[in-house]
Structures are given as C-alpha cells and as structure tokens.
Design a protein around this nucleic acid. Sequence first.
DNA 1: TATACATGAAACCTTTTGGTTACACAAATT
DNA 2: AATTTGTGTAACCAAAAGGTTTCATGTATA
Lengths: 122, 122
Amino acid sequence: MYTCNRKVSYTLEFMRRDVFQAIADPTRREIIGLIAHRSLNLNAVADNFDISRPAVSKHIKILTQCGLLVIKKQGRDRYCEADFKKLNEVSNWVEQYRSFWTQKLDALGDFLDKETNTDNNI
Amino acid sequence: MYTCNRKVSYTLEFMRRDVFQAIADPTRREIIGLIAHRSLNLNAVADNFDISRPAVSKHIKILTQCGLLVIKKQGRDRYCEADFKKLNEVSNWVEQYRSFWTQKLDALGDFLDKETNTDNNI
DNA sequence: TATACATGAAACCTTTTGGTTACACAAATT
DNA sequence: AATTTGTGTAACCAAAAGGTTTCATGTATA
C-alpha cells in the first residue's frame, strides 16, 4: 500500500526521483518555467537566482533524475531542456479529484468511475 | 525572483503551507485518497499505515495547514474531510504545460527523423 | 466514579534537503 | 601557451522533514 520512495539510493545516477517531490521546490518549478520555451545553459539558468551556481546545478540534477529535464551537451555548455511528459503523472493524480472541487454533486460518481483505471504507480 | 517558502515560521498555526510541498509526500497523497469519498477520524486514517498515530497526525496537520484537509470535531473524534479547492493551484501550474507534453509527441516524430536518436529513458 | 478511548503535543532522534565554499578539469579564447 | 569560461563534484553545514516514545487531556462508557 505505502511504498517508500526516499530510502532508495542507488550507486548510479538513475535513482528514480519522484516527480511530486521534484516540483515541490519553488526554485525547481521556476527553473522549469525558465526553460519551458527555450533551452538554457546552466549558467544562464543560475543567473536567474540568488543562490549559487552549484545549488542550481543540484536542482537541475534532481529535475534530470526524475525526467523533467534533459541535458544536451554542446561544447563546454550543458543546455537544459524541459521534458514535460512526466508531468502527466501529476496531472493524472490531481485531475482525478477535479470533480471534487468543481461540481460537488457529481463528485462521488466521478470518483467511482475513475477509481477503476488509476495507474499511478511510480 | 526566488522567494523562499521554508523559513516562514509564524507563531500561529496558520503558517500557510505550500500545497506543492504538501502533496510531495506519498503518505499524504494516500491520506487524501483515503478521505476523498468519506471522512475518517484520525485513528481510522492511521490504521491504513505502518507508521505511528502521531506521525499520521503530523501529516494531517500539514494537510490542514495548506487547506487540503478540514477537521470536523465530533465528540472526542476528529473527522478528516478533504477539501480539494487548493488542488486547483497545482492543476493550474501543471496544465499550463500540457501542450508541451501533448503536442510535442506529434512534433517528436518529425524531429526524430533528422536528429540523432536521443535516449528517452522512461 | 473509574476506566477506556481519541487525540494533541512535547521532547528527542536520524536522515534528507538545500545551501555554501573550494577545487578540478575540459573547452574556448587570447 | 596561457588564460578565461562553463561545469562537475567533494566536503561541509544548518535547518527541515519524518519518525519515535511519552505524557496530558477531554470524552465516552462500564
């Protein structure tokens, strides 16, 4: 029932970050907003924040590990490109409850409908 | 530009939790799922998890502080009721990027012919 | 009234998070 | 060739997160 995602610490870089945890941080959400339309190299991203460049680098690493960000090497630059497919997981989770905060009357019916085909396993 | 949400610690209980941070924890998402269709008292919620009752109580407090959960006192019981209006904030943020992960699937086919096959680890 | 129950809250602990500085190194530029 | 630039990474730190046990307190109930 309850699967813990935090004690996993593989040796490799693919430690399968949770996308919910990734977007929990406001800085990371802002990074996603920055690179949504155009990819930026790491320094360009860092210029938008008051924190240090390595701190931004860590955030980018987390976004990469959960699949929200892809790094394209180009010379000595690392261009950060957003990949929003993983956001579908968040959308699915949130939207299953949409009826609960929009139409109260149909709430129970909609819930029962959607409950049959939820696949939110990470 | 970057506003830190973590250093806020008011004296009162209304420390305005971030809903993104609230749903980052899998236990809290599960709690929301549990009380979505019927309200449960605290012990009933705690019965669904392996962690202690005070631990669940803390999660419920966080959900309350961000507005995702409302507690209705009834005798000695505290019934937990979900309030999904705050999820709109998450939905808005995610859905602004929906076109990026839906239309991109179509455009992907075009680009894949020309560009080098980048590994899309899913 | 005495006891069981539901919950809140404090004190404490360990791990994670988010930040820093310092240094290494390859790629560009001079 | 020497230097500047972009980035990775290690070592470190404070605070937050998530958990525990223990105790207090208000409600029900035998």
